[in-house]
Simulated scan of single mutants.
Amino acid sequence: MNNIIVIQPLIALIAGILILIAPRLLNYVVAIYLIIIGITGLMPQLMS
């Protein structure tokens, strides 16, 4: 569970940097971010 807490801010930081570098990627970055956060949110439930 501690790994999931550390992964989410790291993903958010990378997504923010990508959006700053290439604003055209906004839709893709947001979509990928939401998918990853959703999967990491479900992981504790899937593991138990």
Rank of each mutant, 00 (worst) to 15 (best):
residue 22 A to M: 15
residue 24 R to G: 14
residue 29 V to T: 05
residue 48 S to D: 08
residue 2 N to D: 10
residue 13 L to M: 07
residue 47 M to V: 11
residue 45 Q to L: 09
residue 8 Q to T: 12
residue 36 I to L: 08
residue 38 G to K: 04
residue 5 I to K: 09
residue 12 A to H: 07
residue 30 V to S: 01
residue 20 L to N: 08
residue 33 Y to A: 07
residue 11 I to L: 14
residue 14 I to K: 13
residue 14 I to C: 11
residue 39 I to A: 01
residue 12 A to V: 10
residue 7 I to K: 12
residue 16 G to C: 03
residue 37 I to R: 03
residue 43 M to Q: 15
residue 45 Q to A: 09
residue 39 I to E: 05
residue 4 I to M: 08
residue 39 I to F: 15
residue 25 L to V: 00
residue 18 L to K: 01
residue 14 I to M: 11
residue 18 L to Y: 01
residue 13 L to F: 06
residue 39 I to K: 00
residue 17 I to M: 03
residue 10 L to C: 04
residue 38 G to N: 01
residue 34 L to K: 10
residue 19 I to P: 12
residue 4 I to W: 06
residue 32 I to N: 05
residue 35 I to L: 01
residue 21 I to F: 04
residue 23 P to A: 03
residue 27 N to A: 11
residue 30 V to W: 06
residue 42 L to C: 06
residue 17 I to C: 12
residue 16 G to E: 13
residue 11 I to N: 08
residue 39 I to M: 06
residue 37 I to F: 02
residue 23 P to E: 06
residue 12 A to S: 13
residue 48 S to G: 08
residue 37 I to D: 12
residue 8 Q to R: 14
residue 8 Q to I: 15
residue 20 L to E: 08
residue 32 I to G: 11
residue 14 I to W: 13
residue 42 L to H: 02
residue 26 L to W: 09
residue 33 Y to F: 03
residue 5 I to W: 07
residue 29 V to N: 05
residue 31 A to K: 08
residue 7 I to F: 13
residue 22 A to R: 05
residue 5 I to F: 05
residue 25 L to E: 00
residue 29 V to Q: 00
residue 44 P to I: 00
residue 8 Q to K: 15
residue 34 L to V: 10
residue 1 M to F: 10
residue 2 N to L: 11
residue 20 L to M: 05
residue 40 T to D: 04
residue 32 I to W: 00
residue 5 I to N: 05
residue 26 L to Q: 02
residue 42 L to P: 03
residue 29 V to L: 03
residue 17 I to G: 11
